[in-house]
Design a protein around this nucleic acid. Structure first.
Lengths: 139, 139
DNA sequence: ATAATGATGCAATGCTATTGCAATGTTCAT
DNA sequence: ATGAACATTGCAATAGCATTGCATCATTAT
């Protein structure tokens, strides 16, 4: 098992240290995007800054991506698509539940095509939809 | 002139104080969304917190909207559509220029329709495209 | 005139993100 | 094995934005 996780790090050219294995393992258990705080609470006692840098390293190497979408705090989630250091394929839409405050990746959605005004060139796109998620929806 | 601005405040049920007239006047001169810092620098000497609360009041009353889009700082711009206290018509897309760091409203764009997974209900949408704006584009 | 309400200004705080630096661990050539 | 070079970690500290509490001043209604 640990081998899998280790290999996943190596595939991305990330040195598989103990801390990183733990963080990746934790991330793989999540089904929502998590904040640095969530990570800190979820893991055993560990240094916040180290976790911060671990996430940053993961992101640089294309293992996780972060979502900003106006919740005040940055959230992180494992990349589902094949990303690499150069190109983050921010292809999917994110969803923030106003009720449970969770942020979800919606891997089955695609970022839409937007026609920009003349001479505007698009490089990336951040689309966050806010509303009520399936678990919080009474219907 | 001042009459116009004053009326615009009254239309939104905002008490037209001197400070508010100044802030609205300043906002009307902008063609990009501005941060609290921009506002503070752009206006004469005035209290940062008062400006903060002025923007907040404006937003509550549907006169301005804010954009979050992952630039770290919140930016504000006048509402172009008809918004009211209850419903902010966040209908248009925003654009952040990686070069000049300005945030633009793109009033001629519409937020796209996204098909959400079952039982997800959308309430609002925040779409920020990052890239290079017309003025920074060499072509 | 006075009470009540709203607006402003100052002080202070909380929180997230971020950097500097020292200590520790790891790798590799000799 | 030894030491140099480098990567990782942990602690301390800082920066910056957002936000609240409270006192003061202005405005309005009675």
């Amino acid at each position: 098992m640990t081998k899998d996780i280790e290999q996943r790090l190596k595939n991305k050219n990330i040195n598989p240290t103990a801390m990183r294995l733990l963080v990746l393992d934790f991330l793989m258990q999540q089904n929502t995007a998590i904040s640095l705080n969530d990570l800190e609470k979820g893991m055993g006692p560990s240094d916040r800054i180290t976790l911060y840098r671990t996430l940053k390293t993961f992101e640089e190497k294309g293992l996780v991506h972060h979502i900003d979408g106006g919740t005040g705090t940055t959230k992180y989630a494992l990349c589902l698509e094949e990303c690499d250091s150069d190109h983050h394929h921010d292809l999917h839409v994110h969803f923030y539940c106003n009720n449970c405050k969770e942020t979800f990746c919606l891997p089955n959605t695609k970022n839409p095509e937007i026609t920009l005004p003349k001479k505007f060139r698009s490089e990336e796109m951040n689309l966050v939809i806010k509303g009520v998620c399936d678990l919080c929806n009474p219907d």
